[in-house]
Structure formats: structure tokens, C-alpha cells
Design a protein around this nucleic acid. Structure first.
Lengths: 155, 155
DNA sequence: GTGGATGCAAAGTGTTTGCATGGAC
DNA sequence: GTCCATGCAAACACTTTGCATCCAC
């Protein structure tokens, strides 16, 4: 990992942003929150709470804290939940946050490897679906599943 | 519900099909399996195991049996799992089965109402994603989420 | 100093499994 | 009669919650 002792001293606008968000929500900026958001920012991929816990310095915090932090970040719009259909919660940096962008995933059904996909559905499909059924604030979730090159060889 | 006492007597080709599938898989055709598949066929929508148990005649079978039956049916390709992101398993009749067809869903984030959507992604998107990453047997999952007309009024 | 964040353990929720019994073939 | 399906209860995996303590502000 990287030295966390220096992080405080540095002025970093993107950090300012999230700290402001947290404080506006009457929340507090703690070391584990900083480090969790840092991981999500640095590595753009879906993280399970377990993954995050494992990537933090040993004994940095409890799994329950990771869950609570992620839930809070989600409410604040800092992170978004990713659902890959295996019944585990995953999170990544929100697409409108620095470091985030709209994308989908391609998951190997064998080894669970996850690739990021930048292709997306046609812009009008979402609005058409919304219009046809009178729904508002319509978003979509699109995930691809298949067998990755390595697992094709293995089988 | 409908009289289940007569069902056995009737010759029904679509029933023949699934029964053959089950038997080929060294499985047995039982009353609860018949009734579960019947429900899935008659009502094209995502069912949770609980939903199914509730729709069966009282004391027909155990929740564990519903799970085991659905798992088996999924292996046989009779039903398919639907994931709407709330961490509950849902199943519908498989799209290549009589009574099934390819479709997606539009879910209300407030009241969880589920609508069926026949729009789909462009045919070439899936194959392009597969080709670009060397994946095989690529399928996709596309779900829409929004606020339904009724919940818009409520809020 | 105050109120939110945390650790720990316990409770929850949905799902799966072990084992003896029942039923399809 | 054989073997799979079932009921029941226990086990499971992941997530949430209660409560005393800690720490950001």
C-alpha cells in the first residue's frame, strides 16, 4: 500500500469533495473511510466488502464498519452498488465521481473474472422504456456473462 | 387454483416434453414438480421460491423442495433464474420453453412492481462484446429500474 | 464535550444440506 | 425393490443491528 501518513498534508481537490460530502451529511472523516474510498478510486472495479477489508492494512477496521461505510457512501452518491448475480454486494466508485465512469461488465461464468465493458445500450432505449410505461428516473443494469479464453482452454 | 385431480388424465404435449426431460435426467415426475412448472408456465413472471410455495395448495410441499425443484429445473434448462438485484432468487419459465420468450424487466424502485419489457439490446452488441474479449457463449442480463406512475403520485 | 463511528457479538435473511422416510418407476 | 424426492431441522454465507466505547469535530 501507500504511505497514509502523508495523505493528510496533501491538498487534493477530489478528496476535498468527498470530505465535504461526508461532512454535509453530518458524517465524519475517519481513517478507514479515507482508505476505503482511496481503494475504490485507485482500482476501478467491483469490490466486495471482504475484498476491501483484505486490502486495508491489517486490523484497520471491522467488516461491519466496511459495510456501514459503503452504505453511507452509497447514500451520499460517492459509490454505487454493482450486482453480478452471485448474491454478494459489490461496490465501485460512482460513475459521476472523479475516477468513475459509466460502464458495464463481462463476467466469466467459470472463474468469475470480471472485465469492464464500455459498450452500452442505445441512448434512446432507456427513454423509450420509460416513456412507454410512464416510469421516471429510469436507469438500467446491463451485464454480460460468458466463458473467458482461459476457461475455454481449461474445459 | 385449478382442479389438479384432472390434470393427470389429460394428454398435453408440452407436459410430455418436460416430463421426458426430467426422466432423462434420471429424475422423477412428482406432483409438486408438476404444479410448480404449471405455475411458471401459466404466469409468465419472476417467481420467488416463497411465491411459489404460497401459490401451491397448502402443505403441498416444503420450501426446501421448491428450491431443489427449481435448481433441478434450471439444470435441465426448463426454467431460468432472474436476478432483480434484491438478493432474492427468482425464476421464470426458460425462454426456449413453451410459454417462455426472451424479455427483460422494468422494476419500480419504490414498490417493486415488475413489468415485462420486450425491447432488447441490438443483436450485434452481444457478439461484439464476445469477440472483443474472446469470450464464448455470451449472454446478457438487462434490467431497468425506475419509479412507476403510482409511486410518482405517492411521493 | 457531543454525537457520530467503531468493534464485537448476536441476530437476521435467504438458501443449502444431512438424514431418515416416502413414493415414482 | 431401487433410488430419487421429500420433510424437517440444522448448517451456511452474507449482511445488519444493538450496545458500550472511541474519536472527529
Amino acid at each position: 500500500m501507500k504511505s497514509s501518513s502523508k495523505r493528510r498534508a496533501r491538498v487534493d481537490s477530489s478528496h476535498q469533495d468527498w470530505k465535504a460530502s461526508v461532512r454535509q451529511g453530518a458524517g465524519r472523516v475517519t481513517r478507514s473511510r479515507e482508505e476505503i474510498l482511496e481503494l475504490l478510486r485507485q482500482h476501478q472495479r467491483p469490490w466486495t466488502p471482504q475484498d476491501l477489508l483484505g486490502a486495508l492494512p491489517p486490523r484497520r477496521c471491522d467488516l461491519a464498519t466496511v459495510y456501514r461505510t459503503l452504505t453511507r457512501f452509497e447514500e451520499l452518491g460517492l459509490v454505487q452498488r454493482v450486482d453480478l448475480g452471485d448474491g454478494r454486494a459489490r461496490f465501485e466508485i460512482a460513475e459521476n465521481q472523479p475516477g468513475g465512469h459509466h460502464h458495464h461488465h463481462l463476467v466469466c461464468r467459470d472463474c468469475s473474472q470480471i472485465l469492464e465493458i464500455d459498450d452500452c445500450i442505445p441512448a434512446d432505449l432507456e427513454s423509450r422504456v420509460a416513456r412507454q410505461h410512464g416510469f421516471r428516473n429510469v436507469t438500467h443494469r446491463l451485464e454480460f456473462f460468458g466463458i473467458c479464453p482461459r476457461c475455454q482452454r481449461g474445459t
